[in-house]
């Protein structure tokens, strides 16, 4: 069952501050992912992989085309949906694990992860959050601390826990193992496989070909539109 598909998706940046420079990044992108499937976006650096991922999430505004997401039984076009609907889709259907953890002052690592849980009581959420963090080798003694001073790798793992604790049927992963050592990388691979096996649709950008080969069913190649300088 197709969970997400794009039709003729295009994305352009118009930089008014740089004299109106226009940068076309995506054009005519037709793409889809089904439940239980993991698709890896490939392409050279700067080709637009992250742009595509962010556009799918509604974080970037598409210039044209459609992005349809299966949200509670019906297809919602992220491009034309009201902001309120996009918030709802993100809350229940579409999850995003970004490369960088945006840190909220004062909120502990545990609460950052527990916050993202759905359908659980606050206590249940914290228990599950603690489990996930421990699985990703974030020791219990760090759970109560705000992660502002954690290492990049630790922050990335908190991000991952946050992404995987929810029950989103579709997950978007942007370089999920970028700052991780091999041991943690393998755990993430396991988690992605488990998610895939449980029927989630996953779209990922994997810099590490080993991870990509271990998790993706197929690849989708994003070609750069502009010539490399």
């Amino acid at each position: 069952m197709i969970m997400l598909e794009t039709e003729n998706l295009s994305k352009t940046f118009l930089l008014h501050l740089q004299g109106g420079v226009r940068i076309d990044v995506l054009s005519g992108v037709d793409f889809h992912v089904s439940a239980g499937e993991c698709v890896a976006l490939t392409g050279p650096s700067g080709a637009g992989k992250t742009t595509l991922l962010r556009s799918l999430y509604g974080n970037y505004r598409a210039a044209g085309g459609a992005i349809r997401v299966r949200h509670e039984g019906r297809m919602v076009d992220i491009v034309t949906a009201s902001p309120r609907l996009v918030v709802e889709v993100r809350d229940r259907t579409l999850g995003y694990v970004s490369q960088f953890l945006r840190v909220v002052p004062r909120v502990s690592a545990l609460d950052i992860v527990a916050d993202a849980a759905r359908g659980l009581s606050p206590d249940e959420a914290r228990v599950k959050a603690a489990e996930l963090l421990r699985r990703l080798h974030i020791p219990t003694r760090l759970h109560g601390l705000p992660p502002a001073t954690f290492s990049g790798g630790e922050q990335q793992r908190i991000n991952l826990a946050r992404g995987f604790i929810g029950s989103h049927p579709i997950l978007l992963l942007d370089e999920p193992t970028a700052s991780l050592d091999n041991a943690n990388r393998d755990i993430v691979i396991e988690m992605i496989r488990e998610a895939r096996a449980s029927g989630k649709a996953i779209i990922g950008i994997f810099h590490d070909t080993h991870v990509r080969d271990a998790t993706a069913d197929r690849v989708f190649h994003v070609s750069p539109l502009q010539d490399a300088a």
């Binding site: 940046f13 118009l14 008014h16 962010r54 509604g58 974080n59 970037y60 505004r61 902001p83 996009v86 918030v87």
Partner: peptide, 12 residues
């Protein structure tokens, strides 16, 4: 619009 969209992909 959506906060993260306006701040990450400003149009105006």
């Amino acid at each position: 619009g959506l906060t993260d969209q306006v701040l990450d992909d400003p149009q105006h």
